[in-house]
Structures are given as C-alpha cells and as structure tokens.
Amino acid sequence: MTGQMTDRPEPVFAAPWHAQVFALTVHLNESGLFAWPDWAERFGAGLKARGLAKELDGGEDYFSVWLEVLEGYLAELGQAEPAEVERFRAAWEAAYLATPHGEPVHLQASA
C-alpha cells in the first residue's frame, strides 16, 4: 500500500490555546516585531529556569512557559503591559461567565 501512514497521528496541538499562542508568536515574528533568534533565546532561558524547579514534559507546561515568556517579551517591547493584560483577561472571563451557554462570547471593552 502506498502513501499510507500506519503511525497513529498525534494531535498537532493538545489544546486550542497552544495553537493560538504559537500562531501569535509566529505572526509577531513575521510582522517584524522581533527576530526569531531573539525569541528562541528568551524562550530557551525561560525553559531552563522553569526546568530547574521541575522536569518539564513538553506538553502543557511547555506552552505555559511559552506564554509566560511571550508576555514578558511583549511587556519589555512596550506592546502589552502586565496590568493591561490582566484587565483584558478578567474582561474575557467576565464575558464568558455572562454569556449564555451556546452563544458566541463577545468582549465588551470597558474603555
């Protein structure tokens, strides 16, 4: 049989937000906000720092570090201040909690 994979395919991303944070980083790089080696250097340092505290298994914890490093980098670049991120995170949480199940969730900007 040709062209057939007998390997069981693995999910590409284990959770939707893994894909979102990955795509966001790739997009920011492609739009010129930062060079990939600069990102990789920070991410590598972040993994190393977290890996000292506990062994990372390459799954959820890997993308948790990814997100943490991206948040730090965006703050450093003046693109997203931590307080602003927290404000919008809370706004999204409130929006989910206020939206009846099954309906699309909209964020109502407080500004």
Partner: peptide, 22 residues
C-alpha cells in the same frame, strides 16, 4: 455548569487578552 458559556482555562484567557490588545 451550562448556565453560561464554558470558561476556557486561564492561559487561554491570557492569550485572548494579548490578542485583544495587539
């Protein structure tokens, strides 16, 4: 449960916050 839209995990909300801002 089921009264409102299912709440995504915290990191997902943080990614959404970044997307909203950017």
């Amino acid at each position: 449960d089921h009264a409102h839209a299912l709440l995504p995990p915290d990191p997902a909300l943080r990614v959404k916050a970044l997307e909203t801002i950017l």
